[in-house]
């Protein structure tokens, strides 16, 4: 049926090992980096990571909120799984 061999959601992550992935985290944070390890909690180990932190300011209605973006690079990073919202592998074609 499916062209891919994905039977369970974690297959998607397994096929992304050693690839650059996008990770959306709680607290308006995003990461891109190369995925080297994960477990059933979605704890991750990634290298060559760039973190993007979105800082939204101005919550008053009628005032356009300004989004400040902070970026930083991290060499090798363990990410605790409970903060993970979404992981997107590089698009397969």
């Amino acid at each position: 049926m499916e062209p891919s061999s994905i039977q369970e959601p974690f297959d998607l992550i397994r096929l992304s090992l050693s690839e650059r992935v996008f990770v959306k985290l709680r607290g308006d944070r995003e990461l891109t980096g190369i995925l080297h390890a994960y477990d059933g909690h979605m704890n991750l180990i990634m290298s060559d990571v760039e973190e993007t932190i979105m800082l939204v300011e101005g919550d008053q209605p009628g005032v356009a909120p300004t989004v400040n973006v902070a970026k930083r690079k991290l060499d090798m990073l363990f990410v605790r799984g409970d903060g993970v919202i979404l992981v997107s592998p590089p698009s397969r074609t």
Binding site: F10, L12, F22, G81, I85, L86, V87, S88, P89, S91
Partner: peptide, 11 residues
């Protein structure tokens, strides 16, 4: 937009 996306179930 994502070609593929894994969403952690607790969310």
């Amino acid at each position: 937009r994502y070609g593929d996306a894994f969403i952690r179930g607790n969310n």
